[in-house]
């Protein structure tokens, strides 16, 4: 029986790894190019991409820092804002529910419409391009991340197990105590549900916001700039970095979630 379980666990790793290796080989040997009809200019070999990453590690690190600042800054601001909106909606229940329906509609607005609009708003904020653009980018990411958090946090604050509110009532607990001891802890798993969506969104938002920004820094912008200049391997280097950023942040989120929600019962 035990060998069966070990085999099952091992195959969960080995099989996808084997598949990935196969794709890598297809790519490096250019068979992949023939399949999808690309050429080695627009789709450089992985070895070439690796070279470029090594050669440019300094500037790559710079741009990564900038993009991370925007992504994380917007994520934090959006999450806090979203949570506050959820709290207000939970307090003013009737109006809150309707307002939240609208907020989730915001999610459906294409980010491409958002970014230029925000850019214009921040135009007169400051004389320096640097500060203007960063502010604009962070605002875009903030808006992008707010909806998911507010909808989920609202659910977390209001969908309580049956009778738990009644229990609090029987203790004659004031509303603020009910909030702190019941609603807040109850909402934590929902916060993480929201983060699982908004963390990747924050990265996407940062990259797309960079396309429309005034300044030309950041991983996303570099992808575009290098393509425009025809320097494909460099562009791909930045694409690889963008993917790594997304993966790293998500893995970090998973670790934090495990720690914070350590002993909770799985519903």
């Amino acid at each position: 029986m035990k060998t069966k379980r070990i085999l099952s666990l091992v195959s969960s790793f080995v099989l996808p790894l084997a598949f990935g290796t196969m794709i890598y080989i297809l790519w490096q040997t250019e068979i992949l190019h023939r399949i999808i009809g690309a050429d080695t200019v627009t789709l450089p070999l992985p070895s070439r991409i690796g070279e470029i990453i090594g050669a440019n590690s300094q500037s790559i690190a710079e741009h990564t820092k900038i993009t991370l600042k925007v992504a994380v800054g917007g994520l934090l601001a959006g999450s806090i804002l979203g949570y506050l909106i959820a709290v207000v909606a939970a307090v003013f229940r009737k109006w809150g529910a309707g307002g939240l329906a609208l907020v989730s509609a915001f999610n459906a607005i294409p980010i491409v419409a958002l970014a230029p609009v925000v850019n214009n708003w921040t135009r007169d904020m400051s004389g320096e391009v640097d500060i203007r653009s960063t502010a604009a980018k962070i605002i875009v990411v903030t808006i992008f991340c707010t909806a998911s958090m507010s909808v989920n946090a609202y659910r977390g604050l209001t969908e309580l197990k049956p009778f738990s509110e009644d229990l609090m009532k029987s203790y004659a607990a004031p509303k603020i105590v009910v909030f702190a001891k019941l609603r807040l802890p109850n909402s934590l798993p929902y916060v993480f549900t929201a983060l699982r969506v908004s963390v990747p969104s924050s990265v996407i938002g940062a990259l797309v916001a960079e396309y429309f920004a005034e300044d030309t820094v950041g991983v996303g912008r570099q992808i575009r700039e290098n393509i425009v200049k025809g320097q494909y391997p460099t562009a791909w280097a930045y694409i690889a970095v963008a993917c790594l950023i997304g993966i790293a942040m998500f893995v970090l989120l998973t670790i934090v979630e495990r720690i914070v929600l350590k002993n909770r019962r799985r519903t």
Binding site: I36, A38, T42, L43, I111, P200, V203, I204, L207, V208, V219, G220, I223, R224, I227, Y232, A235, W236, I239, A242, C243, I245, G246, I247, M249, F250
Partner: peptide, 19 residues
């Protein structure tokens, strides 16, 4: 992985591959 990767951010490169 697809969930974690910023696919929208890869729009420019897909444009150049397909032309």
């Amino acid at each position: 992985l697809i969930q974690m990767i910023p696919i929208l951010g890869m729009a420019p490169i897909i444009l150049s591959i397909t032309g």
